[in-house]
Design a protein around this nucleic acid. Structure first.
Length: 219
DNA sequence: GACCAGGCACATC
DNA sequence: GATGTGCATGGT
């Protein structure tokens, strides 16, 4: 897929920069990455606002707080009980292995850190890669539902191809370029929201020129 | 009132 | 290994 750069350029000239990730610190971004699992970002913002208002948006405070109280604060983000557990699990890794410092976590070997993140209960490939790219500035391409929808609608990969296969496409086809990976993924989310909804509006989509002949299925 | 949203773990066949 | 289900709020 040597068109990957062209697709990016098309999206970038259509939309301009997206200024991701919406979050002020690496730690806030990591928290947001967990809270946004299968959830609208607006709901996540409310949860993060609650944490900030309570003065609890730090590794130390979130380590101290009781899980039940944390769950109440993040209630607007949905799945609040399970996400409270997941945040706690991430905090344990951060405190126990990196003294609560995202800066120290950033110095860890990339592949080893990705394994450690994936071992955390509640952190899967997308959440791990979001933390690596957006919180820690590592050259890792994030694959999410929008990426799958956009690429599968254009018959580039089947919707349910493995995560690693989607990711390989970008890692093989692009230079290891953090700002590029950052902007590209954000643009997929943008174009996905605007045109690749369950009810698509392909006529006005900036990517319609990249549509390939269909091979078979895509939802 | 149905449908959807920047996943993941776990059960079951 | 594939498929199904629970987790939950808030916006359209």
């Amino acid at each position: 897929m040597k068109n990957l750069l062209k697709i990016f350029e098309r999206l970038y000239s259509f939309y301009g920069p997206q200024h991701w990730w919406p979050g002020e610190t690496p730690f806030e971004i990591a928290v947001g990455a967990i809270l946004t699992q299968n959830t609208n970002w607006g709901n996540v913002e409310k949860a993060i606002t609650n944490l900030k208002a309570a003065g609890l948006l730090s590794p130390e405070k979130l380590e101290e707080i009781q899980e039940g109280r944390l769950a109440e604060l993040i209630r607007p983000a949905g799945y609040f009980n399970i996400k409270a557990k997941r945040l706690k699990a991430f905090i344990s890794l951060l405190m126990n292995s990196y003294q609560g410092s995202m800066k120290k976590m950033k110095k860890e070997d990339l592949q080893y850190l990705r394994h450690k993140l994936l071992e955390v209960n509640g952190i899967g490939p997308e959440t791990a890669d979001s933390i690596l790219l957006y919180a820690l500035g590592k050259p890792v391409f994030v694959i999410d539902a929008y990426t799958r929808r956009v690429l599968s609608r254009h018959n580039i990969l089947p919707y349910d191809a493995p995560y690693e296969e989607y990711q390989r496409l970008f890692h093989d086809g692009l230079d290891e370029d953090v700002p590029l990976f950052n902007e590209y993924h954000a643009l997929f989310v943008r174009v996905g929201k605007d045109f690749c909804r369950p009810k698509p509006r392909c006529e006005d989509c900036p990517l319609k020129v990249f549509l390939r002949p269909s091979q078979s299925s895509n939802p």
